[in-house]
Structures are given as structure tokens and as C-alpha cells.
């Protein structure tokens, strides 16, 4: 520990002493589709190309959909999705296994990449399906999924349902403020200017919205 306090150490390279994943047995190597995300990431760290392909199939729709929602441009969403997955392949150690779920990390990386792209291009997106904050429920699913692992897909669907339900329970102005920040890449002052509301009002909406969302998702597990 340095005199000013050292950041904690963690990472896949330290996984042996921080987190222990059950490595799938030899007999299961042929069916990586059953592996949990963290096991796939361990395999990817060992340059397992099949594991990468399984992880791609599992989450490309989510990554692409989130990128599209932020960028409102199919080409840019493709570029962002490619960037996210290629970096995942090249630097799997960036995912710190004992700091949270893989899916949360992946979504966070995707959002940051897409918002960086949005800001870099200096343009504001055209919102998918109209004004902010209302994901088009009727549009989902836009396709019939053919996932490799029904169990993980069911869990994913449950998670999406929980998040959407939690968002639906939020007052509209709180949801709008949260989505303008998260999907629009706007700061509080920019949101206040866009909504013609005082800055304090926007801060309150974001604070209350996050509180309610946290409570709601905790209740739903």
C-alpha cells in the first residue's frame, strides 16, 4: 500500500486469487453455448475463438440495439458494435470479473463508445420512433431470435422486462431526464436548456429517477 493509498488490484490475470470460475469440463468444450459469460471471457483471454463467437451471438443484438438507439444510424451502430466486440477480443482483461456482471460491463462499454461517437461527430441523433423516452414496445421483437442458449435468452428477456417495467413506472419527466443523459449524451445544463426547465429541477428529476429505478429493480431482483 503506497503512502497515498493504492487502487485495489483485480483483473482476469489475477483471477486465480480473486475469483474462481468453474472451468467447464473437457466433455463440455463442444457446447460453449452453455457456458456463463464469465467462463466465456476466461476462454477468450486464452484466445478461444469459438468462445468469442458464442459471446458475439449472445449479445450482438443488445449491443447493436443500444448503439442504434443512441446514434440513430445503422452504419454508425454497426461500426460501434464492431468496435466494442473487437476490443473485447483484443483486451478481454479490461473486464474485471470481480467488479460486477459481464452484461453490465458490456452495456456500459457500448454506451460510452456510442456517446463518444455521438459527441465526436458533433451531431444530435434523431430519436428512434419519435420523442425521447418511449422505447417502441410494439417493435419488440423485430425478429425471431435463434439463440444458442435458451436459458440465457430467457434470463435476458426477464432482465429486459424488469428494466422496462421499472422505467414504465417512473414519472415521465424523470424518465425523460434520465434518457436524455444516458442515451442522448447531454449534460444536466444541456438537458435544462433543451427542456426549458431550471437546472435544479433537472438535477432533482435525475436523482429521484435513479432512486426509484434502483429501488424498483432491487425489488424485482
Amino acid at each position: 500500500m503506497g503512502p497515498q493509498g493504492n487502487p485495489e488490484t483485480a483483473g482476469i490475470r489475477n483471477v486465480g486469487r480473486t475469483v474462481v470460475f468453474a472451468r467447464p469440463a473437457e466433455a463440455e468444450l463442444a457446447s460453449r453455448a452453455d457456458w456463463p459469460d464469465e467462463a466465456l471471457m476466461l476462454a477468450i483471454a486464452s484466445r478461444d475463438e469459438l468462445a468469442f463467437a458464442v459471446l458475439y451471438d449472445r449479445y450482438v443484438d443488445l449491443v447493436y440495439s443500444a448503439s442504434f438507439r443512441i446514434l440513430a444510424d445503422a452504419g454508425l451502430a454497426e461500426d460501434t458494435s464492431q468496435d466494442v466486440f473487437v476490443r473485447l477480443w483484443r483486451r478481454p482483461e479490461a473486464f474485471i470479473a470481480d467488479r460486477g456482471r459481464f452484461l453490465s460491463w458490456l452495456m456500459s462499454v457500448t454506451r460510452n463508445r456510442a456517446v463518444d461517437e455521438l459527441r465526436a461527430r458533433g451531431r444530435r441523433r434523431r430519436r428512434e420512433g419519435g420523442p425521447l423516452g418511449e422505447p417502441d414496445e410494439a417493435a419488440e421483437p423485430l425478429f425471431a431470435t435463434h439463440p444458442p442458449d435458451p436459458q440465457s435468452t430467457a434470463e435476458l428477456h426477464e432482465e429486459q422486462l424488469a428494466v422496462r417495467t421499472a422505467l414504465r413506472d417512473l414519472p415521465g419527466e424523470q424518465k425523460t431526464a434520465l434518457e436524455l443523459a444516458y442515451f442522448g449524451g447531454f449534460t444536466q445544463q444541456e438537458i435544462a436548456a433543451r427542456l426549458h426547465e431550471p437546472l435544479g429541477t433537472v438535477k432533482t428529476r435525475i436523482r429521484l429517477g435513479m432512486q426509484k429505478l434502483r429501488k424498483s429493480l432491487e425489488v424485482r431482483g
Partner: peptide, 27 residues
Amino acid sequence: RLAARFAMSSPLRRPPSHLKDRVLAAA
């Protein structure tokens, strides 16, 4: 982690089929 779950509220869209080839090639 809480904020990241926002991303999951987006309507699902299927990326074009050639994206996988692009990603694998780029990787």
C-alpha cells in the same frame, strides 16, 4: 451497473448478417 441496465430497455434490432464477418475479420 444500474445505469448500464438502461441500455437493455432499447427495442431490439437485429444487426445485418454481414456484421459478424466484419467483426471476425477485424478481430
